[in-house]
């Protein structure tokens, strides 16, 4: 079994230009960065493309990184990854149109449940639930999408979100509240468009 990596030492080696250490650091941070990128990935961007952007930015900014007691290096990385994802979401120009007809049957049930409090959702349809959640989130503005993903999908606290984004905690709460309101409007619009369209 391999001994745990000395991150601090590795960072110092990368700062002095050690490419082997840089490779090791990338491997070490792969799960952390992949998880963040996966949850905040714009529609038309590949997971590894955005990861590459995060790692390049990370290595470029590493020179200015100074270790602070009690704050792990991973916090700095998470913050950088979240901000890079937010930039990527902002760069995504168009938001796709979404119609009721695009949904699968399970997703329709979830959306119906969300808007009309219809039947309780079926027990084994978590992929459908995820599909609805991602579609709804994709129709929000990048900061709104980010805050709801961090809060509701990743289950992070408002304090963590505040540290990751640089927003104050009241701002995080306010943004989340507004984002949920917008989400409700988006879901209603989808339902409305369904009933307005000629069959």
């Amino acid at each position: 079994m391999e001994p745990p990596m000395d991150v601090s030492r590795c960072v110092q080696r990368v700062q002095s230009g050690d490419l082997v250490a840089a490779n090791g650091l990338i491997d070490h941070l792969n799960p952390l960065v992949r998880r963040i990128v996966r949850n905040h990935l714009p529609r038309r961007e590949g997971e590894e493309d955005l990861m590459q952007e995060v790692f390049v930015k990370l290595l470029q900014k590493l020179e200015g990184y100074r270790e602070r007691p009690g704050i792990p290096f991973e916090h700095w990385v998470s913050r950088l990854a979240v901000r890079t994802c937010l930039d990527a979401l902002r760069a995504e120009r168009s938001r796709p149109e979404w119609r009721w007809a695009d949904l699968g049957e399970g997703s329709e049930q979830w959306l119906d449940y969300l808007i009309h409090q219809a039947e309780p959702p079926p027990g084994s349809s978590s992929p459908d639930a995820l599909a609805v959640v991602l579609e709804l989130l994709a129709h929000l503005s990048p900061p709104d999408r980010l805050v709801l993903t961090l809060l509701d999908l990743e289950e992070r606290s408002t304090l963590e979100i505040s540290q990751l984004t640089g927003w104050t905690r009241p701002m995080v709460k306010m943004r989340a509240m507004r984002a949920r309101r917008k989400l409700r409007q988006v879901a209603r619009q989808v339902m409305k468009s369904e009933f307005e369209e000629p069959t």
């Binding site: 996966r38 949850n39 979830w110 449940y113 969300l114 409090q117 959702p121 349809s125 978590s126 992929p127 639930a129 995820l130 609805v132 959640v133 991602l134 509701d152 999908l153 289950e155 949920r180 989400l183 409700r184």
Partner: peptide, 17 residues
């Protein structure tokens, strides 16, 4: 709506790879 959204997202979390 918030409670239903929470329920939806908790189910969605199960499918996040």
């Amino acid at each position: 709506f918030e409670e239903r959204w929470k329920r939806l997202t908790s189910r969605a979390r199960m499918s996040i790879p």
